[in-house]
Amino acid sequence: MNIFRLVADLLHLASIFILLLKIQQTKSCAGVSLKTQALYFVVFVTRYLDLFTHFYSVYNSLMKLFFIASSAYIVYLMWKPYRPTYSASTDTFRAEFLIVGAALLGLAFPDSWHILDILWSFSIYLEAVAILPQLFQMTRTGEAETITSHYVFALGAYRALYLMNWIYRYYTEGYMDVIAWVAGAVQTILYADFFYIYLTRVMRGRLFSLP
């Protein structure tokens, strides 16, 4: 564990609490992509099956359980109690393409041919693009509630810190994980536009709105 990874994981946790806070405070999930949230649930379930086969640390297991449980809870909230507030008409990104694409990539470039490694690879590829429906929705509506943009920013910052974590681990441990690196770099690049708008607008107290 290093400081980049720890802060990254904590930002990931924070992003989930920010999202739950947004839903609870505004009593609405308007502007939140259910597709992105459902994709994250699929990502966590397919990646963390090693909960049953491997024990790394209490921290590792608790975080995995939290990510699975919280993503299931968010999908539930959007699907049932807050369904009337869900902006389905702007959440129109074709998420099935992302799932099919990640599945094909997982089969073409798996970490190994063990079923858990194929699913792990699939989840890494899927996570890289899972934010796209959310970003697409924000582009379509042209703006987002400030708290929703905080959520996306925390997620993007978490990914950016993972890049620094990998550089650090490469030099200190000789750690290499090409699949995670490439997918992680792609994932971080997807946030580039968002970061720019967030930093120039939201940080100055303005609404997240596209120029």
């Binding site: 086969t53 491997h54 990510f67 993972y162």
Partner: peptide, 10 residues
């Protein structure tokens, strides 16, 4: 081990 590769990151 059940898997070839160990992934200790979240």
């Amino acid at each position: 081990r059940a898997r070839n590769n160990v992934h200790d990151e979240l």
